[in-house]
């Protein structure tokens, strides 16, 4: 009975629950990319890293029976792809955007190849915390089942913000990103700092990918990611390279991504595909509003190619 009583209230509830569920990959990818971009480099290949993380996390969870080992493996694979990006970018005359595009294609291709045997079998998924235990409305219970990775991501945002602002490592990353010459004069190697920053970004993107295959939607297929990695990179620009803004932006994009399925669940299937495109449209609109042709964006790292 309670289920029908909910009626139209199901839509905002599903959007809210979806915001939490769908936002987690955005959150991880964007937090990693904040660090990479703060060091003065952009990694557009995170879409490929995300898919590779999803595949390897699923495979390891399947073989070991432990989804957490899967998450770890996804992170390690992601950081290897990050190292590859950083390694190629440290060669002279190489453009980081082009390398990102190449790794986007390479990562997805490799994931599809290696992932072929894992399309059918079911691997153990990540557990969730039933925060809706107090209610006896099934939708509310379902909506408040929150994955642990979401909380880790939420905790990581202020931690990263603090670390970038207050620690020596954070200062070093910011200095390399703002003025590589100055950093070199201080005795830091920009290439090494960017290598670690890109590896960190890859690790986070890999973990974000493992969320896709190990929790929501919770299985491996080739259509698993549809541009979440690219949206997350755009989201970093919108968030002005601030980890806390990434958190809010991820929730917003997660909510937009949940709009289509939420409307479908109350029987509105008209325009289903268009509602599914909501996150892309939202990204585009926000970029149009946030960017400006005349001035460099406030808070942009000085060495970043994309804002020059």
């Amino acid at each position: 009975m309670a289920a029908e009583a909910l009626g139209w209230w199901g839509v905002p509830l599903a959007v809210g629950a979806g915001a939490i569920r769908v936002s987690t990959p955005f959150l991880f990818v964007s937090l990693g990319e904040v660090v990479t971009e703060t060091s003065g480099r952009i990694n557009l290949g995170l879409e490929g890293t995300l898919v590779m993380g999803a595949m390897s996390g699923y495979a390891i969870s399947f073989y070991t029976g432990s989804p957490w080992l899967g998450v770890l493996a996804a992170g390690i694979v992601g950081s290897l792809l990050g190292a590859l990006h950083a390694g190629i970018c440290s060669l002279p005359k190489v453009n980081d955007i082009a390398v990102g595009i190449a790794l986007l294609l390479f990562g997805t291709g490799l994931a599809f190849f290696l992932g072929t045997p894992f399309v059918a079998p079911q691997a153990p998924n990540l557990p969730s915390i039933p925060l809706g235990f107090w209610s006896d409305v099934p939708q509310i219970q379902a909506a408040l089942k929150v994955n642990v990775l979401f909380f880790i991501g939420v905790a990581a945002a202020p931690l990263l913000a603090w670390a970038l602002r207050n620690t020596g490592v954070g200062l070093m990353i910011r200095m390399v990103g703002d003025n590589a010459e100055a950093a070199r004069a201080m005795g830091y190697s920009p290439l090494t700092v960017r290598l670690w920053a890109t590896c960190f970004g890859g690790f986070m993107a890999g973990v974000g990918g493992s969320f896709l295959s190990l929790y929501y939607p919770g299985s491996w297929s080739e259509g698993l990611s549809s541009g979440q990695g690219i949206i997350a990179v755009a989201l970093v620009i919108f968030a002005r390279w601030r980890p806390m803004y990434c958190l809010w932006a991820s929730l917003l994009f997660g909510g937009a991504g949940a709009l289509g399925p939420a409307l479908q669940s109350v029987g509105i299937s008209q325009g289903y595909y268009l509602f599914n495109a909501a996150p892309y449209v939202l990204t585009l609109v926000i970029m149009i509003i946030a960017c400006s042709p005349d001035r460099t964006l406030a808070g942009a790292p000085g060495e970043l190619s994309i804002t020059k």
Binding site: L44, S226, G227, A234, Y280, I288, C291, P293
Partner: peptide, 14 residues
């Protein structure tokens, strides 16, 4: 608007 064309073109594709 200074919107990066690499990202916007990919969003347009989706």
């Amino acid at each position: 608007r200074g919107v990066n064309e690499t990202i916007s073109s990919l969003l347009f594709a989706y």
